[in-house]
Design a binder for these strands. Structure first.
Lengths: 154, 154
DNA sequence: CATGAAAAGAACGCAAC
DNA sequence: GTTGCGTTCTTTTCATG
């Protein structure tokens, strides 16, 4: 875990919102010169604080997939089983996000598929086929109101 | 909505995974020369297919916030009320994602806050204070197993 | 941290095939 | 779509204060 000072946080905040700004522009925003900003960015990249840079597509302009949230509960909540399920889910491309949840000790999965038929195949074929899966409850997304990749920095 | 040919899809796939590759490297991957790749990328940027480029932070190396999923149901599911709620949610920074869900006609919100106390303030203060909110059910994330921003291209 | 210089590489624009 | 060239901009390194 890396300690971040105030400038670090502002810098990461900026890069999370727009990584195409060049060092000169970022420096101006933070009222510093290029050198320190450049060095901080390179440090973040080297230390892995910045994992990667990616393009974000506009969902209005492409044919968007059907998105489904599914709650998956396991027969056993032993750590070993949880890790086995987690590992399996990693390699399923339809699963965009997966969280281990408190409360009912379920997983919550965000799944993207082409259509209902594809979802059926995914759900009964791939997901239910995983060992230890007890129950799957699916809820369909009608509309994406907000989606942000920016994590608040504490 | 833009039509994408096979190369477009591969190109966007690559840029969603790593936007720091230069045109030369991408061209090599797609077995084309720089010119057409460069032009396609510029077209995507101009047309807004590529909305922006962002840095993705490594959650292991920063102090990650507490993440909570909350189901919000409204008193009324009239379109007008749904839009009013959607608009309000847009401007709440704690709300990272928000989806209008099928089934129970609820919203599903992914919320990031510093700690339980902050969540309490958010939930009872900001969220419950919105007009028309009937019920809020919160489930806490224990562990993030997978998180990807890559949308499959259909 | 600021300044400035200098080299390498990438982006960008153009022309010819 | 390819090849090639030239200009401009950014990145990257380095030296000085």
């Amino acid at each position: 875990m890396v300690k971040l000072d105030s400038i670090d946080k502002q810098l990461l905040e900026i890069l999370q919102a727009d990584s195409k700004l060049n060092v000169k522009e970022i420096s101006a925003k933070l009222k510093l010169t290029k050198t320190p900003i450049y060095e901080r960015i390179k440090r973040f990249e080297k230390e892995g604080v910045i994992e990667k840079y990616v393009a974000v597509l506009n969902k209005e302009s492409i044919k968007t997939p059907m998105v489904v949230f599914c709650s998956v509960s396991l027969d056993s909540q032993k750590l070993e089983e949880i890790e086995k399920f987690s590992a399996a889910v990693e390699n399923i491309p339809e699963v965009m996000e997966c969280y281990l949840m408190g409360g009912a000790n379920d997983f919550l999965l965000k799944v993207a598929v082409e259509d209902l038929n594809a979802y059926h195949q995914f759900s009964s074929g791939k997901l239910a086929a995983l060992p230890n899966v007890a129950q799957i409850k699916s809820t369909f997304v009608l509309n994406e109101v907000k989606r942000s990749t920016v994590f608040p920095l504490l």
